[in-house]
């Protein structure tokens, strides 16, 4: 009986390796390659076409000197903070209501989630219409006799981002509610029974027992909302077009405008690199908490 040696590793699992080629190309060429390319070219003075003339941090200096960029960031911060808080709170409250073993649960859930199926363009246009001061809510309240009533968020530079926030929340809260509901359903029935036997009021059970148990769902929801916030683009384009003036600009729109409208590629690369940096700041601690802990 002779000894067999380990065959070449390369051709074992050959089909799996072939099947993984699209994934490898996407991961390495598009995701890694594309990202590195953009970061590198953010240090050039590319205008209409990418050029390899490196100008150091010029683009970044120009970026941080641009009022449009600063307004974009401010809007993103306001939109981000409020949409995070409201989506989580409203989403959880709605989920808790739906979890009360109510009738017509499916109907309620269907109604609360349907906006999520719609595109941001549709969402933005619908709310543009409802918030239209000449025909929408402001017009109706005035025609009911309250002549001085003013509610025109889309036409007032100071509050336009809150008008967008209303539409954004309408779109995404259903998703968060569904996630939270799944989380609530994952809680062991016995926990509820035990807390009832111990005589703990329902709100206390939610606050001190259930929510801590749903830590994972909350983190997922936060990451989900946060990564959505950074990408906000279509909603702005449809609802306000960045206006009035530049008062509702956001970074994603800044990037698009720089790259494809004002032929200022370098600015677009620098702005998108800043967006990447923001994501890294959000995702890295999360990934560390989620996956770093498991390894130990």
């Amino acid at each position: 009986m002779d000894a067999a040696t380990r065959p070449f590793r390369w051709h074992r699992n050959f089909s799996a390796k072939v099947a993984a080629i699209p994934m490898i190309i996407t991961a390495m060429v598009v995701f890694v390659g594309g990202t590195v390319w953009t970061v590198v070219y953010s240090f050039t003075n590319s205008k209409l076409l990418p050029r390899e003339k490196f100008v150091g941090l010029d683009q970044y200096e120009r970026l941080w000197g641009s009022s449009k960029w600063l307004i974009s960031l401010e809007n993103l911060a306001i939109y981000g903070v409020f949409s995070l808080i409201f989506a989580l709170v409203i989403g959880f409250l709605l989920a808790a209501l739906l979890d009360q073993k109510i009738r017509f649960e499916d109907t309620f859930r269907t109604i609360l989630l349907y906006p999520f199926a719609l595109s941001f363009i549709v969402t933005g246009l619908a709310w543009q219409w409802i918030l239209n001061p000449d025909f929408g809510i402001q017009h109706i309240v005035r025609s009911m006799g309250w002549e001085s009533f003013t509610f025109d968020p889309l036409y007032n530079p100071d509050i336009v981002i809150y008008g967008v926030l209303i539409a954004g929340l309408w779109h995404e809260t259903g998703l968060i509610m569904c996630l939270m509901l799944a989380g609530l359903r994952g809680i062991d029935e016995d926990i509820w029974k035990a807390s009832r036997i111990d005589g703990i009021p329902m709100w206390k059970t939610y606050l001190f027992i259930v929510i801590p148990m749903m830590r994972g769902i909350f983190i997922t929801a936060i990451v989900l909302i946060a990564s959505g916030i950074i990408k906000v683009y279509d909603l702005i384009v449809a609802q306000t077009g960045g206006g009035p003036g530049i008062s509702s600009e956001v970074p994603a729109k800044y990037v698009y405008d720089a790259m494809f409208l004002s032929q200022n590629l370098g600015q677009g690369f620098a702005a998108s690199t800043m967006m990447l940096l923001t994501v890294v700041i959000i995702v890295v601690p999360w990934a560390y908490l989620e996956f770093g802990g498991k390894r130990q």
Partner: peptide, 17 residues
């Protein structure tokens, strides 16, 4: 499962790989 070392014979035939 791929073994890390050693040999397996079934019916006198080396089937390790």
């Amino acid at each position: 499962l791929d073994v890390s070392g050693g040999q397996i014979f079934i019916g006198g035939r080396n089937v390790t790989w």
